[in-house]
Design a protein around this nucleic acid. Structure first.
Length: 338
DNA sequence: CAAACGTGGGT
DNA sequence: TACCCAAGTTT
């Protein structure tokens, strides 16, 4: 039986996905800035969702120095809709630190000191941008390794064991190709459900396939029930502008642009002004750890606001808002237009 | 270590 | 429909 890494790389040479941030197999070294930017965007986020965001960021900020010089509000607006907004805040903090230091660190340990870069991302940048034989372990690799070695311990308890096993497979050459090959295999062949074992280049040596339990691995601890919460969002217009506010820099939707709201996140508990509110049909939204029913209250008034700032409707771009607030706007906008 | 942290797509 | 999942990090 040939080496796992060798078989995987031969498969990758023929089947590597073509992605905007990727250098073709066997190609030149990737730009650390592009690798870093894509890896941050890809954290817990699908390739399909990331593509257009990556292209726009590269157009606007082609290198770490231009990104470091960007306004916070511009970056938050471009990130809006992608989720996990701490990533965007850390992205800017990281860019400014890297620009000040003259470039990215070139070791995994150095990379991991930067904001937003943890065990996975540091290994990915070291392997893909610097061709270092660091072992990259994301959800794909956890699944591939759990199946190859038939690890039946549930996650997250199995994490340490899976990392140790993954390290035994990492080759010394073609580090970037190998890391991306493992992830491509997990994403396209060794999938969570209905893995395509019949066409898998590693099926010969796969213990889970031999045991007939590949689709069941990795096992996972049962997850907690999702609580239901309720809140109110106030949409105010004076006929020319609408009232928006910047959310606090930490916590849920931290740093994003939003309609004044309350009741669901522990924030301020009163309306931004007194008005005759019209209650629209509530919107539904699901976060990672709770479900939300958001009442949408609409008013037209010239009264002064206790908080937030007015944004002219002809300068307002709903795409600058996070997903939840886009839904609020989609509910209110047709009523404002009437 | 468990919990917080978004969103959209697949089954 | 309801649940699972996606190139995780931070606290």
């Amino acid at each position: 039986m040939r080496d796992v890494a060798q078989r995987l790389l031969e498969w990758y040479d023929r089947h590597a996905r073509v992605l905007p941030w990727r250098v073709p197999p066997g190609g030149s070294r990737a730009d650390p800035y592009r690798v870093w930017l894509s890896e941050i965007m890809l954290q817990q986020t699908t390739v399909a969702a990331v593509k257009s965001y990556f292209e726009r960021f590269i157009q606007l900020w082609p290198d770490v120095h231009s990104l470091a010089a960007a306004d916070d509000s511009a970056v938050m607006a471009e990130w809006a809709g992608l989720g996990y907004y701490a990533r965007a805040r850390n992205l800017l903090a990281c860019a400014r630190q890297v620009a000040a230091e003259g470039g990215f660190p070139v070791t995994r340990a150095g990379l991991q000191t930067l904001p937003g870069i943890g065990p996975y991302t540091s290994a990915a940048i070291a392997a893909i941008a610097y061709d270092q034989p660091e072992t990259v372990v994301d959800g794909n690799v956890e699944r591939v390794v759990a199946r190859l070695f038939a690890v039946e311990t549930p996650l997250p308890a199995a994490k340490r064991e899976l990392v140790d096993l993954a390290e035994t497979l990492t080759p010394n050459g073609r580090s970037g190709d190998y890391a991306q090959a493992m992830m491509d295999l997990g994403a396209t062949i060794c999938t969570p459900r209905n893995p395509a074992c019949v066409i898998c280049p590693l099926s010969d040596g796969c213990a889970a396939r031999r045991l007939g339990i590949a689709p069941e691995l990795p096992r996972k601890a049962p997850r907690k029930a999702k609580p239901q919460r309720a809140g109110i969002a106030w949409v105010v217009t004076d006929g020319t502008s609408i009232l928006l506010e910047r959310r606090p820099p930490k916590g849920l939707l931290g740093g994003t642009l939003a309609f004044p709201s309350t009741g669901w996140d522990g924030g301020a508990a009163t309306a931004p002004l007194d008005a005759a509110w019209r209650k629209l049909e509530p919107i539904q939204h699901v976060f990672t750890h709770f479900s939300l029913e958001m009442q949408v209250h609409l008013a037209k008034t010239n009264a002064p606001a206790a908080r937030g700032h007015w944004v002219r409707l002809d300068h307002f771009n709903p795409a600058d808002l996070p997903g939840l607030m886009r839904k609020v706007w989609a509910r209110a906008a047709p009523e404002i237009a009437r």
